[in-house]
Design a protein around this nucleic acid. Structure first.
Lengths: 148, 148
DNA sequence: TATTGTTATACTCTATAACTATA
DNA sequence: TATAGTTATAGAGTATAACAATA
């Protein structure tokens, strides 16, 4: 009786590595853990860094625009910015043109911290993807799935 | 001035699609949403289904063993099993050999529900990966990253 | 009336510690 | 002493609704 495929690839005999949700969930968990550890000395985590990266380039953005880029809820971005502002990485300024809007900008500390942390992120991702024959192709696949 | 690569691929001008964490997080979120919708008529979600799949084959498992297969904490598995037991999908039985252990088994309703839901999962994953040129390769990449 | 940001609330998932019953 | 399971608790992350200020 031959059923090597099922047995070896976790099809029916208990392995979870068949399941896309399981794989994505735990791959993300391991990346998050590695990133958190590597970024901790710089005073931020991967989520903070993503916020900084959204506001680092181009024209100043309102909170809503930052939230949209990150694909997070506008009620979440407030707390994130509170933390970043307390640590002196960002500043919120009322927009003169539309006084409802908070324009979010990097401080110079925020900019230098971003530059260092971004290097760390790239190193972590590089090492994380090292087991793959074609790391860029994997990233492209993820982009395709998101439609970006 | 030519900088199409950066601009188009979200390198510096605001796009997040460069960032591995962002990509994994939102790909997982979209898969979870699709799975939740598709499985709802069967009375479970993707997490429930993963629990069922852990106990569906082979020898009976204790709760700790189920938790280990799913890579979740043993305090999480209790609530999950409570829900599945209330809905009549699983039963917990004291192990006669070691009365500390709860052996978890599928009911016949649990088995038939699993069979249907598992078909739905495969369809959802197939459709979800359809944008990719080589869906299996993507799954293999994820396995490699997890070391499974 | 609609939009930006804030606050309050709740729900899910996860993690830790303390407890029980068994070994 | 150690292990299996439960309970209580707390922390993230997310989502909804209601509100104040502004357009």
């Amino acid at each position: 009786m031959i059923r090597t495929t099922d047995d070896q690839r976790g099809g029916r005999l208990g392995g979870m590595s068949d399941r896309l949700g399981y794989l994505l969930k735990h791959v993300l968990a391991e990346l998050t853990e590695a990133q958190t550890k590597a970024l901790a000395p710089h005073g931020l985590n991967g989520r903070d860094l993503a916020v900084l990266s959204a506001i680092v380039a181009g024209e100043p953005l309102s909170q809503l625009e930052v939230a949209a880029r990150l694909r997070v809820d506008r009620t979440s971005i407030g707390d994130l910015l509170d933390g970043l502002e307390e640590r002196g990485f960002v500043e919120r300024r009322r927009s003169p043109e539309d006084r409802r809007r908070n324009v979010v900008v990097l401080t110079s500390l925020g900019q230098s911290t971003f530059d260092e942390a971004e290097r760390v992120r790239l190193e972590v991702e590089h090492e994380f993807l090292a087991p793959l024959a074609a790391p860029d192709r994997f990233r492209d696949d993820l982009r395709l799935l998101l439609g970006e």
